[in-house]
């Protein structure tokens, strides 16, 4: 059974590229455009990994990450933070909130796919 990946970002073009990449890598994909939609999709879609943008309307990526990590039933779910803000403090904050990886935009598509695959296969 294919692993499920949820893409959360408010930039339509970025969502489009991520969707294309993940599908091509063989994952089942769902999309959310903001923080609240992300939480709803997690509940409905039950992804194995969430690609989570930080700067979003309604709820920021940090908030979403915090809420998801507060739910022990989803402890196995991987979270990869995506952000155009690459300062050390922001990376540290994301990791501290329980993200498994923090990827700075613009990213290398190859590296990102490899990283997502690694997280999902390596456990």
């Amino acid at each position: 059974m294919a692993k499920k990946v949820l893409i959360v970002d408010d930039e339509p073009n970025i969502v489009l590229s991520l969707e294309f990449l993940m599908k091509k890598a063989g994952f089942e994909v769902a999309v959310a455009r903001d923080g609240e939609e992300a939480l709803a999709q997690v509940a409905a879609f039950g992804p194995d990994l969430v690609l989570l943008d930080v700067m979003m309307p309604k709820k920021s990526g940090y908030e979403v990450c915090e809420i998801l990590r507060a739910d022990p039933s989803r402890a196995g779910m991987k979270i990869v933070m995506l952000s155009a803000k690459g300062r050390d403090t922001e990376v540290a904050k994301g990791m501290a909130l329980g993200a498994d990886a923090y990827v700075t935009k613009p990213f290398s598509t190859k590296d990102l796919v490899a990283q997502v695959a690694g997280l999902l296969n390596g456990g």
């Binding site: 930039e11 970025i14 990449l21 155009a84 935009k105 613009p106 598509t109």
Partner: peptide, 14 residues
Amino acid sequence: SHELRTPLTSIRAF
């Protein structure tokens, strides 16, 4: 830098 990185992200990805 955030504002610049956002379009760059799409450009690089595509």
